[in-house]
Structures are given as C-alpha cells and as structure tokens.
Amino acid sequence: MNARIRIVVALLAMGGLAAVSPDSVVAYGGPGSVISGIGTLLAAIAAVLAALFGFIWFPLKRLYAKLTENSTEEEEVA
C-alpha cells in the first residue's frame, strides 16, 4: 500500500509541475480544438450523470417494487 501512495504522489507532483510549466501556456487553442474540448467535457459530464442515475435510480426502483409487492400481499391475506 505504501508503494501505491508513493506512485500516486509522484504522478500528482509531475502533473502539477507540468501544469505550472511556462511551456504549457504557449500553446494555441484554435476554434476547432476548443469546440472539441467543450464537446468532450460535456460528454464526460453526461456520462458521469448517467452512471449516477443508473446506480441510484434502478436499485431504488427495484426496492419500491419489492415494498409495494409486499404491501399488496399483506392486503390480500387480510
């Protein structure tokens, strides 16, 4: 576990150094690349929201169906 933490810290440090490096601000973002970047960002956000929806909604839906099924069985017995 200790080696994994060291690797993660090293990767974060390298990423931080690359982000503040003066060479990275010299790049030009043309209109096509900016629009592609925005589209990629929106697609990533939509994928995260869809995953959250799937992991939250469908188990709740199944639980609701199970609870209502149990309540109707109790009403039929009475």
Rank of each mutant, 00 (worst) to 15 (best):
E69L: 02
L67V: 12
G54W: 00
G30L: 09
S21W: 15
L67S: 03
S71C: 02
V77E: 13
R62V: 12
S24F: 05
I38A: 12
G54K: 02
G29K: 05
R6D: 14
V77N: 04
L12I: 15
A51R: 03
E75Q: 09
M14F: 14
L41D: 05
S36T: 11
S33W: 10
T40H: 05
E76V: 10
G15S: 15
T40P: 01
G15H: 13
L52H: 04
V20E: 03
A50P: 02
L12M: 15
G29P: 00
V77R: 07
G16S: 11
A27C: 04
P31G: 04
V77P: 00
G15F: 15
T40F: 02
A18P: 01
I56T: 08
F55K: 06
M1A: 13
V25A: 15
G54N: 02
A50C: 09
K66D: 09
R62N: 08
A78C: 07
S21R: 08
A51W: 09
W57M: 04
I45F: 12
G54H: 01
E73T: 06
K61Y: 06
F55P: 00
S21H: 15
D23T: 06
A47W: 08
A13Q: 05
R6M: 07
P59K: 06
S21Q: 14
D23E: 12
I45V: 15
M14V: 15
E74F: 07
A43W: 04
V34C: 03
L12R: 02
A46D: 08
I45D: 07
E75G: 01
G54T: 03
A50V: 13
V20T: 10
I56R: 04
V20F: 13
I5N: 08
G16C: 10
G29Y: 05
M1I: 13
A19P: 00
V26I: 12
L11Y: 10
S36A: 14
S71Q: 12
V48E: 02
P59W: 01
L67D: 03
P31L: 09
S33I: 05
G30Y: 06
L67M: 13
G30K: 06
T40M: 07
F55T: 06
N70R: 13
L52C: 04
T72P: 00
A3N: 11
G30S: 11
F55Q: 06
A51E: 03
R6V: 02
I5P: 01
V25D: 12
G29N: 08
G29L: 05
L12V: 14
A3V: 06
A13C: 14
V8W: 10
E75L: 14
G37E: 02
V26Y: 01
A47N: 03
S71L: 10
V48W: 04
L11Q: 12
G29T: 10
R62P: 01
A3Q: 13
